[in-house]
Write a protein that binds this DNA or RNA. Sequence first.
DNA 1: TTGATTCGCAACTGGTAGTTGCCATTATTG
DNA 2: CAATAATGGCAACTACCAGTTGCGAATCAA
Lengths: 217, 217
Amino acid sequence: MNARAEQGKRRTEGVRTRGRSARVVSEVLRTVLEELGRVGYAALRVEDVASRSGVNKTTIYRRWPTKAELVAAALRQWTEDPEVPDTGSLRSDLFLVAQHSVAMASSPLGQGLVQTIQAERTSPEVEALTRMLRSENRRRRVVMVERAIERGELPAGTDAMLVVEVIFATIYSRVFTHREPADDVFLQAVIDLVLEGARRGGALLQRDGGSGPTPPG
Amino acid sequence: MNARAEQGKRRTEGVRTRGRSARVVSEVLRTVLEELGRVGYAALRVEDVASRSGVNKTTIYRRWPTKAELVAAALRQWTEDPEVPDTGSLRSDLFLVAQHSVAMASSPLGQGLVQTIQAERTSPEVEALTRMLRSENRRRRVVMVERAIERGELPAGTDAMLVVEVIFATIYSRVFTHREPADDVFLQAVIDLVLEGARRGGALLQRDGGSGPTPPG
DNA sequence: TTGATTCGCAACTGGTAGTTGCCATTATTG
DNA sequence: CAATAATGGCAACTACCAGTTGCGAATCAA
């Protein structure tokens, strides 16, 4: 396709990390995130990023050989804040994190990022990045549930990952797929439904048949 | 941007609906779906669709003024089969529908469609189409749950929509977002967790405070 | 059969990603 | 502080693909 894209060539060596170069890097990546939130991935123009960040287009291409790599670099810079609440009640902890996630996901930037991830799913760079971000989020959320198991809020042997997956998949689906607001009432309803099921042993690990009916088909 | 795109002009009147014209339409739309599954929306080239369906590029543009409209037309042709099982057990019904959904979603075509929907979310045509498809799916699924409520499998006053939303959001998230396989064990786990919660009254409508702790924050 | 409709063909325009050569700056290093 | 290697600005490229246009040929409907 393109010489640089094929060979991964960069003219810039990354030796100079202060002064003008530093300003260029941070300013460009900041602008990319801004543009992603504003117009999304497909409509993001490298020339626009250049002019908006007061830098020449050539300069951008010398540092990031393709639009995909440029966006990947911007994504790498973006990290969700890692606060994990510990209120003593799983319900409250989950609610706080859910609220925070919804706020992130509902913002223009959040919408732009998801669009980008879908559009660039062939890019191994973007793929690896999102996989990392997601696994980190999941890890932190699982911790909350495991603490609750230790406290006795949920039965021992509860599949913490499943609980987390069900709750947050539902919430993100509301915001991203359905593109409908996820208000506090909705968040509470989802959390309560799943926690009720888990409390009653509906999410126990290593379930070998016998108790319930076998899957049909 | 483009003359036709702006004014929505089509040279084709749609008067001839048999013979060559019919072949052209069906062959082109079939090829579009094929290509969507093969390479996704962004990489889909109208010229490729033309050559692969044995039709001239101009012919395509005269009938579908933009790539987005072409894809929207192909999407419109695609409809999921509307079978709703009624085995007498909600657990079994949900499992069957879930299996079917996973099969659809895991196919190359399914993956391509989702990517398209994300990429073309600015297109009101595509937006309206997917909204329709989704609401129809949801409607059919809600029916299953409501039948179960009538049978007494779930308590009266259960929010059927919530139950459906949580289960299928989680499944789709597995397949589309996480891009991990959703095997039968996973499907059963999700269904069992949610049904257990619902059975214990975790999904009742019109819950006014008093029973549980109030949302923090 | 006849005429309006649709299709094929080839040669366009336009926008945007990515490239290149040359010269001007500027950060680092001694 | 001077030398120099790294980097940035500029302008003029190429390449690819969406979308256009005019004309003559094929073909469907009456």
